[in-house]
Design a protein around this nucleic acid. Structure first.
Length: 489
RNA sequence: CGGGGCGUAGCGUAGCCCGGUAUCGCGCCUGCUUUGGGAGCAGGAGGUCGCCGGUUCGAAUCCGGCCGCCCCGACCA
């Protein structure tokens, strides 16, 4: 057994652990194009589960899917001043087509506000046409300097919601509602607790009135912005003449929101739950929930255990079952590979449950069930699998969230600390520091330069400290907000 | 775009300083024996040493240029 079978440990080098794990668990691979990655079936399977769950939630909140083009006329980008300033530097631009120089260059969408609101403008005349509640599943391209698998790639997959409303307040409700949807998805499906809140101006989306976000804490105590929701105000409506006649018969500009989450969440999943043995996937998002490993000595035993394994898999996972009763089972019937090697294989890939079935188990009509998250192992009778597995999977899902939440709390600092102590925290263990801020962007900038930490958000009320800080951590002046400081991805 | 590192079989590497046709491990193929925590033995396949040029009788090795990747910064979902 050689050392290259062991994963770099999180403690030794977190960043190397992450890269190695993503590659070795076959979530993704580097591609021939710089900064772009190939999402392999195991990774894409997670994305498909994410899409399905989120899409259901979007539909249940009244949204519809549509699709807008990948190419955006370059002139569209520049119609909203702040937006063009924010995105122009990172745009890929098509200058040639069909062997000819294009009359107007085409930007490959970095985000679709401009093209979508230009179309909304055609479709909206009256307040009766509002609201428009659209979503699209798409790829976008941003010319990033430095890329990392899932966390920042030049092309990534995401969903972008785009809505238009008659009033500011309606748009505000929508932006907050979708932030809540994200939070519920991240906690309920990813088992990843998040802090929701408002971005400061420096971190606000280019062209938005207000940006709300979900911030998660990774195991190296750095923050990951996992989702954003923007109240765009009337900025884009004015740029694209998205106007309507209101009940009073006056022309008015619509109010827009946009909101998105991306394949970056897969990186968050890895860094939230992974351990030194590999991935740990939450039952709701894992492509395979239970892997069955048949064990044998003789050919007869091989045939018998594989037959039983397949029968169980068929019974639990049949497509004839309604979706919510179906368990995603895989039988690892590869010959010539010892059971132990299979255990390592599936542990690396994060499959929540493993069922071992050997000759002894056939006799007793039971198997050994091992949990990936806790590594507990116990016997379970075949005839209770169908009844008990869903409960066990739910338990794993819940336990993973509890564990992640405990880690988030353990690495959050709420007691008042001095700026010097803060610097030590950021140089050392890191974490989320709740502290007062005087509201001055210059202070935010200075802290960033001195500590690499940024204000992740002004947390929503339910995340704030019982006793609000009264003074700014840096200047000692009266605090305008309680904010969360952390280094971020 | 600045700093650092690295490109040798599918993967990871030795060799490079000191020039003579490439080492080892994993993986892969065949056979036999194995299989309840990473199997053993035997045999075998697989290489334009990132690319281009130079020096030399001879270059993975020395020199010049280029390309790519990773890490750390600046910038960003």
């Amino acid at each position: 057994m050689s050392d290259d079978k062991k994963l770099t440990s999180r403690g030794d080098n977190f960043s190397e652990w992450y890269n190695e794990l993503v590659l070795r668990s076959e979530l993704a691979d580097y591609s021939p194009v710089r900064g772009c990655m190939v999402i392999r079936p195991h990774g894409y399977g997670i994305w498909e589960r994410m899409q399905r769950a989120l899409d259901d939630m979007f539909k249940a909140t009244g949204h519809v899917n549509a699709y807008f083009p990948l190419f955006i006329p370059e002139s569209f980008l520049s119609k909203e001043a702040e937006h063009v300033e924010g995105f122009a530097p990172e745009c890929a631009v098509v200058t040639m087509g069909g062997g000819k120089v294009l009359e107007e260059r085409l930007v490959i969408r970095p985000t679709s506000e401009t093209i979508i609101y230009s179309m909304f403008a055609k479709w909206v005349q009256s307040y009766r046409d509002l609201p428009l509640l659209y979503n699209q599943w798409a790829n976008v391209v941003r010319w990033e300097m430095r890329t990392r698998l899932f966390l920042r790639t030049m092309e990534f997959l995401w969903q972008e919601g785009h809505t238009a409303h008659a009033t500011h307040d309606e748009a505000e409700v929508e932006a907050r509602k979708m932030l809540g949807v994200y939070r519920e998805f991240m906690e309920g499906h990813m088992a990843m607790p998040v802090i929701t809140g408002l971005k400061t101006d420096s971190e606000r989306f280019a062209g938005a009135l207000r940006t709300y976000c979900c911030e998660a804490m990774m195991q190296d105590n750095k923050a990951l912005q996992a989702g954003t929701s923007h109240n765009l105000g009337q900025n884009f409506a004015k740029a694209f003449d998205l106007s309507f006649q209101n009940e009073q018969g006056e022309q008015a500009f619509a109010w827009n929101t946009s909101w998105g989450v991306s394949t970056r969440m897969i990186g968050g999943l890895v860094m939230t739950h992974g351990d030194d043995a590999g991935l740990r996937l939450p039952p709701r998002l894992t492509p395979i929930q239970v892997v069955i490993v048949p064990i044998w000595k003789t050919d007869d035993e091989r045939d018998a255990t594989i037959a039983v394994a397949k029968r169980i898999a068929e019974e639990l996972g049949s497509f004839k079952r309604p979706d919510h009763e179906r368990i995603r089972v895989h039988v690892d019937d590869r010959v010539g590979i010892k059971p132990g090697a299979k255990y390592y294989h599936w542990e690396l890939r994060g499959i929540p449950l493993r069922l071992e079935i050997g000759p002894r188990d056939l006799a007793s009509q039971s198997g050994m069930l091992a949990r990936r998250d806790t590594r507990e192992k116990r016997a379970i009778a075949f005839d209770v699998l169908r009844a008990e597995l869903p409960e066990i999977l739910d338990q794993i899902q819940a336990d993973m969230l509890t564990a992640a939440r405990a880690r988030l709390e353990a690495n959050s600092i709420r007691q008042r600390i001095s700026y010097d102590e803060f610097k030590n925290v950021m140089e050392g263990p890191g974490g989320f520091v709740y502290a007062g801020w005087n509201g001055d962007p210059a202070i935010e900038q200075r802290v960033k330069e001195e500590t690499k930490a940024t204000i992740r958000c002004i947390p929503d009320p339910e995340f704030r400290s019982p006793i609000a800080p009264t003074t700014c951590m840096v200047t000692g002046e009266p605090a305008k907000h309680e904010v969360i400081w952390a280094r971020a991805y």
